[in-house]
């Protein structure tokens, strides 16, 4: 079986600061890592490989050269090889341009299953997976929390949807996005870490993919961030510095009573 896992490199901190004037991230010592939610996609792929001999897992990412590291994290969990789509012209891509680039690379390649995380912890859109599937013309199963059965031509999964679980099946090849509950990703061991470190990541630029420039990067992105700002939400509320906890409790009780909320 041929499996593809899509991963993304994300900043490894929650405290990304923004320059409000330019709307860009202040990259002071910004560390990055594989999107934590992609670990579940990688783990699920590796588990299939452990059951099905002859399975090959290819990790694919689009991003700057430094995203090699995220791919190597995936390899250290048991994937076989890595491909990085990297080109200065890919920079600034939104979900559509990203999905388009990924799908152009995948078109014509042999694969049975594509795995992706539910969403990335930086953008939090969760759109690239379903978009890639649509552009490749294959079915997509989102929010999968359990793979029930895979046969030669079909896959049956359980999806975590509002208020419960849905069991549904579709044909292969297809794209699966997984949620946290699906598994407990393994810690990579030294042997796999060293293998990943030595492994050569295939970098592919647009010289090779030859996608029209108006379909990639910022140019190919239908959505634009026009402004980034720290929200100034205000409720003309009352702020009291209390002298005793008792005072606080009285204030709270009065407020509740006054507004009649309970």
């Amino acid at each position: 079986m041929n499996i593809v896992v899509l991963v993304k490199q994300v900043p490894s901190t929650d405290n990304v600061k923004i320059d409000e004037k330019t709307g860009t991230m202040i990259r002071s010592e910004l560390e990055s890592e594989m999107n934590p939610l992609d670990m579940y996609a990688v783990e699920e792929a590796v588990r299939i490989k452990e059951k099905e001999t002859g399975t090959k897992i290819t990790v694919i990412s689009m991003g700057p050269l430094s995203a090699e590291y995220a791919i190597k994290e995936a390899i250290s969990m048991g994937c076989d090889e890595g491909v990085l789509l990297t080109d200065r012209r890919y920079a600034g891509a939104d979900t559509r341009a990203t999905a388009y680039t990924l799908s152009q690379f995948l078109k014509g390649k042999e694969f049975d299953l594509i795995f992706a995380g539910e969403r990335a912890t930086d953008g939090e859109t969760g759109q690239v997976g379903p978009m890639v599937a649509t552009l490749l013309g294959i079915p997509v199963l989102t929010y999968v929390n359990k793979i029930i059965e895979i046969t030669k031509s079909a896959i049956k999964v359980q999806r975590a949807i509002e208020g419960g679980n849905e069991v549904i099946q579709t044909t292969l090849p297809s794209l699966i996005t997984v949620v946290k509950e699906i598994n407990d990703p393994r810690l990579p061991n030294l042997e796999n870490k060293l293998r990943a470190k030595k492994s050569k990541i295939h970098t592919i630029t647009n010289e090779e993919l030859k996608i029209e420039e108006d379909k990639i990067g910022l140019k190919g992105s239908p959505t634009r961030v026009v402004k980034v700002f720290y929200p100034k939400i205000s409720r003309q509320g009352e702020k009291i510095t209390i002298k005793t906890p008792q005072e606080a409790v009285s204030k709270i009780k009065n407020f509740i009573k006054e507004k009649g909320v309970i």
Binding site: P36, E73, L190
Partner: peptide, 21 residues
């Protein structure tokens, strides 16, 4: 460090170099 530990009898060595792990 990992190679040293393995040589000296560790059953395995697991590496966590990101926040999640």
């Amino acid at each position: 460090s990992g190679l040293t530990l393995q040589k000296n009898g560790a059953k395995d060595v697991f590496i966590a170099d990101n926040r999640t792990n």
